[in-house]
Structure formats: C-alpha cells, structure tokens
C-alpha cells in the first residue's frame, strides 16, 4: 500500500503555520466519540503517526446513548458519528456546527448518491462514513423456498426459526412497508393499521438481538432473519449459505456520518481526521473491518473482487429509503412493541 503525503489546502496550511508557535504539540488532540470498534485501531494509529494528533476514542453503542452523554454531560467532544436521522435532529437542535468544506480535500471521492441526502441537503454539517441497509438473511441450506419480502419471512412455517434486530422502529417500519404505508410519517392511524400484522409477526420470532444477530444464525438456532447488512455480510464471508435479500416491499438504508458538535474545541484536528478518513487507502481499511457499504468510490476501487461481490455490502437493485427523524413518535412505537411482546 502506498501512502501519499497529504496535500493541505492553502487555508489550512496558513492556519497551521499561524498556530505553530503558539502550541507546537499541545494543539494535537482529538476527542472522538464514535460507535464501539467502528473506527479500526490501525486507522487511529495511522492518523496519530502521521499527524502527531493524539486521539481519545470514546465509544457508544446506540445513537440515543451518544445523545444522552453529549447533551446531558456537556459537549467535550470534537467529532461524533451519528446515523443520518439522528444527525438530522441534531442539526435542527443546533447541536452540530457547519463544516469548513474547503478543508476537506477528499470530498470528491464520495459517490454522488451520498451527497445532498435529506438529513443534510447541502452537506453543510455531515460527511458520510459508512452506509448500510436492513434486509433479510436466509440460511439457504435450511430454507428451500424463495424469500423475497417481509411477508415471506414472517410465516407460520418459520415459527421460532427467526431472528430480528431488537429495534422498535425497524420492526414497525417492516409492517408499514408490507402494508404499503409511509415509514417516515407515523401517526396513530398508521400504527393502528400496523398493529394486527405486527402482533402476528412478533409471535413467530425466536430472538430479538440488535448487538449480534449473526450469532443465532451461525449457531443454527434460527434459519432466517431481518438484520443489519453488516451482520449479513460477515455471515456471507463466513459461509456462502447465508444469502442477503433486500425486501421487495422496501427497505431502510442508513448512512452513518461524521460531524463536529457545536462547542468542539479542536475543530482543526476534527477536520484533519475527517479528511484522513476520506482517503481511499484509509477508508478501505474500514471496509475490511466492517463490511458495510462504503460511500467512498475511490476506496471501493481498492476492494477485492470478493469484497465487492458480497451481496450484503453491495446489494443489487432494491427499493432503499432513508429514515427521517420522527421525534416524539418514537415513544409511541416503543410502547406498541412492548405491548405486543408482553401479549405473547
């Protein structure tokens, strides 16, 4: 692997030069708040080796966990890694600060499809990190009938053979897709229509697991499920019998982004880190550790044919849609799912 020396844009170079006598090493710190293990250690080490900037990597395992610590604990972070619909709410609440796009030389590496998305139409606040979908994974040694959509998964024949992510909004959105209802405008009427269908589905599920849904599939405790595409990609990598299918009725696509919280202290370092991530050779390392969909086209060119062939990482076709922030409706959704699980 070749490493090019970074070409700093004029403004950044000037700024760095101006800061140099003030704080030669003291400026070199970055408080990164990201998903557990989502930024591979070699990437962090490489960044520090090259820039001398020390990275304090603190982790969380859900968007709400991050929000709780960021908002209640006062912002001491320089860079966060929310999912798109959480970033949308954070922008509205003025929790993020605009990026200086001139400092991000690698923006051109991104696939056009990842620019100007609904959560941040002008790309002023966020830069895509990785992307993925929520779809169906099937153990083709056990399931011999074709499975194309949610209704094919949730049928009586598969009772107690199904794993799904333990996420109320996902569950409800599958029922909404199956009914042909919108997933981003949720009200009492649409929840009432989803309820009977979801009640049937929840009875069939053996395991609800958001953290590692692949485990139950690998262990042979279940035969199919609806899971994060990254989990399905790891399963496919392990054994080709695990096939990934984007549900015909429609599926959720998420983009995890990098963004700088309002009040961050090390803004320069944060920009440098984002730009470092945008480099194809770096982004490629992330793909290797996390086989999600890489939004960085230049990095995709560096992937092996095997990585590119992974149907969960780079699915063909399918109707993909972003989640929008639904604000207070999140509580109604959770209540519905708690209710239905209790009724089992």
């Amino acid at each position: 692997m070749k490493f090019k020396t970074p070409i700093l844009p004029g403004r950044l170079a000037a700024l760095l030069l101006a800061l140099l006598p003030l704080a030669a090493r003291a400026a070199g710190e970055l408080n990164l708040f990201g998903w557990s293990e989502y930024v591979p250690q070699p990437v962090l080490d490489g960044f520090t080796r090259e820039t001398g900037i020390k990275v304090n990597f603190e982790t969380y395992s859900s968007n709400e966990e991050m929000l709780a610590k960021l908002v209640a604990g006062g912002g001491r972070y320089d860079l966060v890694q929310p999912s798109d619909y959480t970033a949308e709410a954070m922008i509205r609440r003025k929790l993020l600060q605009p990026l200086d796009r001139a400092r991000l030389t690698g923006l051109g590496n991104l696939a056009p499809a990842f620019n100007g998305r609904a959560h941040d139409p002008e790309g002023r606040y966020t830069v895509p990190y990785m992307s993925g979908s929520v779809g169906i994974v099937v153990n083709t040694e056990k399931v011999k009938v074709p499975v194309r959509g949610y209704r094919d998964v949730f049928q009586a024949a598969f009772r107690d053979r199904i794993v799904v992510v333990n996420d109320s909004r996902e569950l409800v959105s599958w029922a909404l897709y199956a009914l042909g209802l919108p997933v981003n405008t949720i009200d009492a009427a649409s929840l009432a229509r989803a309820r009977p269908l979801l009640a049937e589905w929840i009875k069939l599920v053996k395991v609800f697991d958001s953290d590692s849904p692949k485990t139950a599939l690998l262990n042979g405790d279940v035969d199919l499920g609806v899971v994060w595409s990254g989990e399905a990609a790891i399963l496919w990598r392990e054994n080709r019998k695990f096939q990934y299918v984007l549900p015909a009725e429609g599926a959720h696509q998420f983009v995890d982004v990098l963004a700088i919280p309002a009040g961050a202290r090390n803004v320069t370092e944060a920009h440098r880190f984002i730009d470092y991530i945008l480099r194809p050779e770096v982004s490629r390392q992330i793909s290797a550790a996390f086989p999600y969909t890489n939004p960085n086209l230049a990095a995709r060119r560096l992937l092996t044919p095997d990585e590119l062939a992974n149907p969960a990482s780079y699915p063909k076709g399918g109707k993909l849609e972003s989640f929008r922030d639904i604000g207070r409706a999140a509580a109604d959704i959770d209540r519905l799912v708690t209710d239905l699980k209790s009724a089992k």
């Binding site: 304090n56 395992s61 590692s212 485990t215």
Partner: peptide, 23 residues
C-alpha cells in the same frame, strides 16, 4: 461506567461489549 467514564478511564466491560459486536 458508560455514563461516568471518559476515554482515558474506560473499563474492560465497555471494551468487551464493543468487541463482542464485531464477533
């Protein structure tokens, strides 16, 4: 621990839970 720790004082269970997700 999650809500009271900083990056420098993160304990083993925090790390273990993160790692378990990657398998």
């Amino acid at each position: 621990t999650y809500f009271t720790a900083s990056a420098a004082s993160a304990t083993l269970p925090l790390k273990v839970f993160g790692l378990a997700k990657v398998g």
